[in-house]
Amino acid sequence: TGYYDVLGVKPDASDNELKKAYRKMALKFHPDKNPDGAEQFKQISQAYEVLSDEKKRQIYDQ
Rank of each mutant, 00 (worst) to 15 (best):
T1F: 15
T1Y: 15
G2W: 15
Y4I: 00
Y4M: 00
Y4R: 05
D5H: 11
D5Q: 11
V6P: 03
V6K: 03
V6N: 01
V6S: 02
L7P: 00
L7H: 00
L7M: 06
L7Q: 01
G8V: 02
G8P: 00
G8C: 12
G8W: 03
V9M: 01
V9S: 02
V9R: 00
V9Q: 01
K10M: 09
K10T: 10
K10D: 07
K10L: 11
K10Q: 08
P11G: 03
P11T: 12
P11A: 10
P11L: 06
D12Y: 07
A13E: 00
A13H: 03
A13F: 06
S14C: 07
S14H: 05
S14F: 05
S14M: 03
S14E: 05
N16G: 12
N16Y: 13
N16W: 15
E17G: 02
E17I: 05
E17L: 03
E17A: 07
L18S: 02
L18Q: 01
L18F: 00
K19D: 09
K19R: 13
K19I: 09
K20E: 15
K20S: 13
K20Q: 14
A21Y: 04
A21D: 01
Y22L: 03
Y22G: 00
Y22E: 02
Y22N: 02
Y22M: 06
Y22H: 03
Y22T: 00
R23Y: 14
R23W: 13
R23S: 12
K24W: 09
K24H: 11
K24L: 13
K24F: 10
K24D: 15
M25H: 07
M25V: 05
M25L: 15
M25Q: 09
A26P: 00
L27W: 10
L27E: 14
L27P: 00
L27G: 08
K28R: 07
K28F: 07
K28D: 05
K28Y: 11
K28Q: 10
F29D: 01
F29L: 03
H30Q: 07
H30E: 06
P31M: 08
P31F: 08
D32K: 11
D32V: 08
D32E: 09
D32N: 13
K33D: 07
K33Y: 14
K33W: 11
K33A: 08
K33G: 06
N34P: 06
N34G: 06
P35Q: 07
P35H: 05
P35Y: 02
P35I: 05
D36W: 12
D36P: 04
D36R: 08
D36C: 11
G37V: 08
G37W: 13
G37T: 11
A38I: 11
A38H: 12
A38E: 10
A38F: 09
A38V: 08
E39N: 07
E39D: 13
E39M: 08
E39G: 04
Q40N: 06
Q40G: 06
Q40F: 14
Q40M: 15
Q40P: 06
F41L: 07
K42A: 10
K42Y: 11
Q43L: 15
Q43A: 13
Q43H: 09
I44T: 02
I44W: 01
S45A: 12
S45E: 13
S45K: 14
Q46Y: 10
Q46H: 12
A47P: 00
A47S: 04
A47F: 03
A47E: 00
Y48I: 03
Y48V: 01
Y48W: 11
Y48D: 01
Y48M: 03
E49Q: 11
E49H: 12
V50G: 02
V50L: 07
L51K: 04
L51V: 04
L51S: 00
S52G: 08
S52Y: 04
S52N: 04
S52E: 05
S52P: 00
S52T: 08
S52W: 04
D53P: 00
D53F: 05
E54H: 15
E54S: 14
E54P: 15
K55H: 12
K55M: 09
K55V: 13
K55I: 12
K56L: 12
K56N: 07
K56Q: 11
K56D: 05
K56P: 03
R57G: 01
R57H: 04
R57Y: 04
R57A: 05
R57F: 02
Q58S: 10
I59M: 13
I59C: 11
Y60S: 01
D61W: 03
D61R: 05
D61L: 03
Q62M: 11
Q62C: 11
Q62A: 13
